[in-house]
Amino acid sequence: MNIYSLLDNSTILAGLKVKNKKELLNEMVDALSDDVTKEQLEEIRDSVFEREEIMSTGVGKNLAIPHGKVKSIEKNYASFAILKDPIDYDSIDGEPVKMVFLLAGPESKNSTHIKLLSRISRLMNSSAFREALSDCETADEIFKAFHAEEERYFGN
């Protein structure tokens, strides 16, 4: 499964303005509202916040990959944001976060969830790709950048 197929213009937030981690995570989850029910949205929100309490998903390099699994969904959903201004996120390197990739998946498909998280990490680990993303100004540009990078990196 490719990452760009999980994203579309409604789930990509370019130049997002938020004040803190809580506001950011709420915006990221809310971006999924066109694809899931209100109940599923709240389950995703709870799961993401619960996961964040266990350990910060700020992985360093100004990137966070919040994620959660819920019983009520059958497939994976994602949102991606580039923040207008970086925020504190309790990242492992102590640096603020500028890019955030949120992944929500079904509890029943743990191996797929882990594979997707790994794929996101590998993609986002590329400093050239992060730089290319930071030059994007619209959701469409970000989507095209993900598509091109996955084609280049994974040959999809």
Rank of each mutant, 00 (worst) to 15 (best):
P96D: 09
K75W: 05
E137M: 11
D90H: 07
F49C: 02
I87R: 09
S10Y: 11
D93S: 13
K115N: 12
R119W: 15
A139L: 09
N2P: 15
P66G: 06
Y89W: 13
E39Q: 12
I92G: 06
V59A: 01
L133F: 02
I142Q: 02
E150T: 01
E50W: 10
I54M: 07
K38C: 08
R51P: 05
S33D: 15
I73P: 15
K38M: 09
I120E: 03
S79N: 15
T138C: 00
P106E: 07
A128Y: 11
M99H: 05
E27F: 15
N20A: 06
M124F: 02
R51N: 11
A145W: 01
L41T: 00
K61A: 08
S118T: 10
Y89P: 06
F80Y: 15
R130A: 06
S127R: 10
A104W: 09
G68P: 15
A78M: 15
D35L: 15
R152A: 05
M55P: 01
L32W: 05
V36S: 10
L6V: 14
A128P: 04
Y4L: 10
L13F: 05
K69Y: 02
F101G: 01
V70L: 12
I87N: 08
S121Q: 11
L123Y: 14
E151T: 01
K109P: 12
D34E: 14
T112S: 12
K38Q: 10
M1E: 05
